[in-house]
Each structure stands twice: as structure tokens, then as C-alpha cells.
């Protein structure tokens, strides 16, 4: 069906921006852990993107541009409500990570099996509970399949930061999943 009366802006927007809706929707879904909130966030992002379409520099990474709009929208809409600190205390996280790593180093193999019994909702909740910076890179890399380079561009940070956040994010996620498994009686005592 050929659209009648569609402006060049609309045509461009549809062909360039909208194919990335799934990327944004999945990111929104994992960040908010709520489909209704994800719906709102995606719509808001696309409407802002359309409104500021003239600001988009053609030929640059449109996914990164859309992602930044969504991230800002997310921050404005949800971060204040969630009372989450604006920045992650990396020292605190590192200390915590080192502590749990040492405590749980011996019993992981047997405990891996317990993860298989966890519900998808448990896993989604564990991700949603991660500090935002870690959650973002884990979602983009492990669920959405983006490269380190893409993530670094999205977040406007060095590659090394992406890598270290991934490492810490996965470690924290593992600890949370082990706790869920143990709470449900799946994990082997270690």
C-alpha cells in the first residue's frame, strides 16, 4: 500500500528509525521490567525522535542516537521514581564483588544446575535489580547482541569501561541468581 500525502520527513523516519524499534523495545522492557512502562518509553522515544528528526545527522549511527534519546527519557521518567542514585559507587560494587566472589568460589559448579530451574521472570527480575550502569551493558551485550564498540558509542564511554562493567554486571547477576535459586531450594549448599 502506498501512502498518500506522507511527507519526506515521515518517509525518512519510517525507513531509518523504525526498523530499530525492537532494539529499543527490548532495552526498555529489560530496564523497566514492565511491559506497560516499556510501551510508554518506546512511544515517547520515537515521538521525541520524530520531533527532533531534523537534528539527526544523516549517515551517523542512528541506533546510538535513538538509544540516547531513550536513555534520557528513561532517566527522566523512571530514575527519580526509583530513587536510584544517579551514579554507581564503583568502589562499593567492586568490594562487594570481591567479597562474594571469594565466598562462593568453591560451590558454583553444582549450583549452576539450579539456575536451570529458575523462572524466566526470576532472571528478568535479577537483571532489573542490577545497578543501572551494569544492567545497561548486560542487556545490550548479552540480550541484544550489540558489539562492545556499539555499546561504547551508545554510552559515550571507552571500550574498557564497557568490558569492566560487563564483567562486574555478570558477576553481580550470578550472585543474585544464586540467591534466588537458594531461596527456592534449588541451590546446593556450598
Amino acid at each position: 500500500m502506498k501512502a498518500i500525502g506522507k511527507t519526506s520527513k515521515q518517509r525518512e523516519f519510517e525507513s531509518e528509525a523504525l526498523p530499530h524499534a525492537d532494539l529499543l523495545y527490548n532495552y526498555a522492557l529489560r530496564m523497566t521490567n514492565n511491559s506497560a512502562d516499556a510501551d510508554d518509553l518506546v512511544q515517547e522515544t520515537f515521538l521525541k525522535a520524530f520531533r527532533f528528526w531534523d537534528k539527526y545527522e544523516k549517515g551517523t549511527n542512528i541506533r546510538a542516537w535513538l538509544f540516547r534519546i531513550m536513555k534520557n527519557s528513561y532517566i527522566n521518567r523512571y530514575r527519580r521514581e526509583a530513587k536510584e542514585p544517579d551514579t554507581v559507587d564503583y568502589d562499593e560494587i567492586q568490594n562487594f564483588y570481591n567479597t562474594i566472589r571469594d565466598e562462593s568460589a568453591d560451590s558454583h559448579d553444582a549450583q549452576d544446575s539450579a539456575f536451570g530451574n529458575l523462572l524466566d521472570d526470576d532472571i528478568a527480575t535479577a537483571i532489573a535489580d542490577l545497578p543501572e550502569d551494569f544492567r545497561t551493558v548486560v542487556i545490550l551485550c548479552d540480550i541484544e547482541g550489540l558489539t562492545y564498540e556499539e555499546i561504547a558509542e551508545f554510552l559515550d564511554c571507552p571500550l574498557g569501561t564497557v568490558r569492566s562493567r560487563l564483567h562486574r554486571g555478570r558477576s553481580l547477576l550470578r550472585t543474585r541468581l544464586l540467591k534466588y535459586a537458594k531461596d527456592r531450594g534449588y541451590a546446593v549448599e556450598g
Binding site: N26, S35, V42, F115, D120, I123, D142, I143, L177
Partner: peptide
């Protein structure tokens, strides 16, 4: 294992 778990269990969802 964690990466694999996420890939297996959390599928890409199509925008409604």
C-alpha cells in the same frame, strides 16, 4: 554460563 543463560532464556521480544 551467565551470558549463555541470558541468551537462552531471555529472547528478543518483538515490538507489539
Amino acid at each position: 554460563f551467565i551470558k549463555t543463560l541470558l541468551q537462552r532464556r531471555l529472547r528478543i521480544v518483538q515490538t507489539p
